[in-house]
Simulated assay, not measured.
Amino acid sequence: MTVSRKEPQEILHLVEPRETDDDPGAGLTLPVILNLNDANSPADVMDVLSLRRFASGEQPWSRSARLDHVKPSAPLRPDDARVLRVAREEGKESTLAEGDGWTVLTNRWKHGSAYVAVSAVTDELAESVLAECVRDATEPPKTSENVEMGFWHLGSRGPVRTERAISADPWETIRGNYTARVAEAFDEVMKMTRDDVSGRLLLLHGPPGTGKTTALRALARAWGKWCVADCVLDPEALFGATSYLMEVAVGEDDDEEENRRWRLLILEDCDELIRGEAKQSTGQGLSRLLNLTDGMLGQGRDVLVAITTNEDLARLHPAVVRPGRCLAQIEVGRLSRAESQAWLAASAPGVEVPAFGPEGATLADLVALRNGEKRAERRDDASEATGFYL
Rank of each mutant, 00 (worst) to 15 (best):
V129M: 01
N146P: 01
A348Y: 03
T2Q: 08
N35H: 12
K110W: 12
R85T: 14
V3R: 02
V353L: 03
A229Y: 05
S73Q: 12
R181P: 00
R18A: 15
H69F: 09
P358Y: 10
C133N: 15
P60N: 06
V15Y: 04
S336F: 00
F186T: 06
G112M: 09
S340K: 03
K225S: 15
I330R: 07
R82G: 05
S243N: 05
A215F: 10
D269T: 07
A137W: 05
P42N: 08
V3L: 13
L204Y: 00
M296F: 13
L203Y: 04
A97T: 05
G251V: 08
I266M: 12
G300R: 00
R63M: 10
T293W: 04
R5E: 04
T210Y: 07
L49I: 05
G199T: 02
K212Q: 03
M1P: 03
P170C: 07
T179C: 06
V147T: 15
A338S: 12
L363A: 02
R18M: 07
D47S: 07
L238E: 07
I33P: 03
M246G: 09
A97K: 12
D365H: 10
I266S: 01
T210C: 13
S94W: 10
A328E: 00
S128G: 00
P60F: 05
E384Q: 14
N35Y: 06
D254E: 11
L96T: 02
V160I: 11
E10W: 11
G387W: 06
L204R: 09
R263I: 07
E373W: 03
C270S: 09
H111G: 06
A241Y: 13
A306G: 07
L265A: 10
S119W: 02
R77Y: 00
T386P: 04
D100F: 07
V182Y: 04
L369V: 11
F151H: 06
L304S: 01
K6A: 14
H13Y: 13
A241T: 08
S281W: 14
E256A: 11
P75L: 09
M1S: 08
D22W: 08
D21P: 00
A278C: 03
L34G: 11
L327F: 01
Q299P: 06
V83Y: 02
N291E: 14
G387R: 07
R379T: 15
E384A: 14
V160H: 05
P17W: 01
I166M: 11
W171H: 06
R108L: 07
G176H: 15
G91I: 05
I33M: 06
V248Y: 00
P31C: 03
H317V: 03
F356I: 09
A220I: 03
P170I: 09
V86E: 04
A183G: 03
V197Q: 06
V320P: 10
D136W: 05
V351I: 12
A376C: 07
E252T: 08
H69N: 13
Y389P: 01
F388I: 03
M296V: 12
L286T: 09
R88E: 15
T386F: 11
W226R: 02
E172L: 04
W171D: 11
H205R: 03
T122K: 04
L67W: 02
E352M: 13
A55H: 11
A306F: 06
G99M: 08
I11G: 02
L238H: 00
R18V: 00
G240H: 05
W262P: 09
D269N: 08
G25I: 06
R263K: 15
K110V: 15
